[in-house]
Design a protein around this nucleic acid. Sequence first.
DNA 1: ACCTGAACACCGTTCAAGT
DNA 2: ACCTGAACACCGTTCAAGT
Lengths: 209, 209
Amino acid sequence: MRPGPRRSISQADIVDAAFELLEQKGMAAVSVRGVAASLGLTPTAMYTYFPSKNALLRAMVEQLLSTIDLAAASDADVAWRDRVHALARALLDRLAEHAGSLVLVTSGPLDGKHALGLNEALIAGFAGEGMPHAEAARAAVAVRAYVLGVAALEAAERAGRETPDDSASGTLWSDAAAFPLTEATTDAAGDGFTWGLDRLLDGFDRRAA
Amino acid sequence: MRPGPRRSISQADIVDAAFELLEQKGMAAVSVRGVAASLGLTPTAMYTYFPSKNALLRAMVEQLLSTIDLAAASDADVAWRDRVHALARALLDRLAEHAGSLVLVTSGPLDGKHALGLNEALIAGFAGEGMPHAEAARAAVAVRAYVLGVAALEAAERAGRETPDDSASGTLWSDAAAFPLTEATTDAAGDGFTWGLDRLLDGFDRRAA
DNA sequence: ACCTGAACACCGTTCAAGT
DNA sequence: ACCTGAACACCGTTCAAGT
């Protein structure tokens, strides 16, 4: 690695600029050209830092996950269930923070450093409760899936609230009165996230017992 | 509704054409212009059928969910747990069938006819097991979230397999050896989906008992 | 080694005009 | 009522060329 002309900015600067755009103008504004412009770069210069737009998105996922405190997850003074809750809530918060984080997460396998660290913390925690390794790994996957799914449902809700009129006309959307059970409970959800996570953890416990 | 010039095609035709493109060329090919071209239409003619691209995506979600057999879900001769499994598996299969179905699902609230029908079937099933309404509704949300999350994780895996080299260079992706627990279990997953769903259902049962 | 400029092949959406 | 043509303001990516 010989010096050469000094790089004006770093990969991290680009990722930061991308998040800035995401927060202020939404996911549609996170384009190669848009991020480049916000940094005073030419679009083509971006390809010296990331081989594709998708590579930039994946770097954003890593930055997102890097803010999760994994040290707290291995603090043996706190009950494991409380630690999973904190971990899961932190993950959900990061994903819900910016709408469209979901397309970030599906931009590629969660095989970055921080993604693997999170997974490792989950497996270690379940194993610490006496779960066999194979089961602990499955439990970790189930927890990640559940959190991602809640984030997806929330993102879907939000997408509808921002552009409330783009349903197709006609018979596709019928009146809600035809679905009495759904109708009776739509606004009585409360903190469904915590409740569902507790049921999942109960299921793990019951198997152990 | 007076006759007027006969409509050359229907909304359903457009949705079918969109799925055709999705299967053959992936989600990127599902564009207003691309779908229009595949039907011999002008892009602008599409806006007589759907007010936006997003409205088309939402109609696709409904078509996707319409293929799930809800009648089987209320067959009292079969144990409820088996019926949830069938329902959840059907949903996962539909979502996993085409990569990029995930962006369909997050295109707006799941408030279409078939989406609500699915929700209704889940709530009714849980209520039939003696769950209070409020809890049954939460259980239905948890199941949907879990299935969506597994689909998201699978989509992410697939996205990586198709374009395996677009990770950023440098220190973001370190060697997997630093994560022994994750490494030891990556390929020993088996049918994690069914296992996790069973744990979630166990958690519901335990609460009932 | 890093960056620019021009170009290619696309997007979603709007609007005036035709039948 | 339905559709076209032209246009606006964008995309991701490549490639030759400059320093």
